[in-house]
Design a protein around this nucleic acid. Structure first.
Lengths: 174, 174
DNA sequence: TGATTATAGTAAGGCACCTAATCATAAGGT
DNA sequence: ACCTTATGATTAGGTGCCTTACTATAATCA
């Protein structure tokens, strides 16, 4: 597995060609991004045999042990995506037999989404498996290591938030 | 700015509800993913005034100072995307006047892509600005901090690669 | 009561990625 | 020379996200 994606390698080569000073900081950022992409890809590979994407998986988990169901707008809020996106994801999950939609009892605008029995079984198994896999990414990390990593990430996040307010890019160069 | 995305918050809540042991490791993973997403979103915001996505921006940089041009398959290799994707990105860049396509001199299957003058100006300005912004994410990071972060990321990456080979998920629970 | 505002779920269209297929061209083999 | 294989760019279609718009319904206001 590579520490950088190809596009990043190309961009760093270009930065060095232009004599940019801090290729090291740029490289570090790209390492974060590449690791996240690699985790996402691995996640997708693990879910694909069940015909699930990450987004669908999240919906399955949200619906787990909710026999009374959830409405699509509730799913969208908790999953952090738009209602329109939920509609598409539910279409796929319904097609694959994992969820079902019913009319809401009291509000005719609403529907309720519930897991089918096979959806429930799948959510049970996959959640456990997925959680263990994610946790395994930090195997042999001492509490000190975890704390250090979390602090470093927080510092980057802070710098990112700073940059958003004080160094707004302008379109005047275009 | 939040340290976790909404879907992650929901998943951690679910893990805790199920009494999963290592919510801390899961949380740390989600912090990495959330930071990467936040960087991506910020990058997209910085590029949007120029009607550029990250993918288009990468192509602009690859074409910078290459007056002889590059063929789409070369762009696809260096950007790490498929040729089909490059076709679409180039369509947009050509429409916006940043690149032009010409027939290749020697191979009639090929075309050559070059930056237009306005594309060149834009690539000049944006690359510098973008590089500085990325580097600024690591402002005040001492060399020791950078080394630590890089090492920690490498350890996660190593665990990820391990998991890919020894803990292959099965579809038998579906 | 009727008008206005808000909410719910979906449709339509766009974007950026993918895969597979297609047509044209080039290279290699017999 | 002809056939086979390989390569290049694009097309077609799919997915998952977005925004906007739409229709139906509910809530609020005068």
């Amino acid at each position: 597995m590579e520490s950088l994606e190809q596009k990043h390698i190309s961009m760093i080569a270009e930065a060095q060609r232009r004599g940019r000073g801090d290729a090291g900081g740029i490289r570090l950022c790209f390492e974060v991004l590449a690791l996240a992409s690699a985790i996402d890809r691995s996640c997708a590979l693990r879910l694909a045999p069940h015909r699930l994407s990450e987004g669908k998986f999240v919906l399955l988990c949200l619906l787990h042990d909710r026999s009374e169901g959830l409405a699509p707008h509730e799913l969208s809020t908790r999953a952090g995506v738009t209602r329109a996106t939920v509609t598409g994801l539910l279409d796929g999950l319904e097609r694959d037999g994992y969820v079902s939609r019913q009319a809401h009892r009291e509000d005719r605008r609403k529907i309720l989404v519930t897991l089918t029995p096979s959806g429930q079984v799948l959510a049970d198994a996959l959640f456990d498996e997925h959680s263990q896999w994610i946790a395994s990414l930090f195997n042999e990390f001492e509490p000190e290591d975890r704390k250090t990593l979390s602090n470093l990430l927080a510092r980057v996040r802070h710098n990112l938030a700073e940059g958003k307010h004080t160094d707004t890019p302008s379109a005047e160069g275009a």
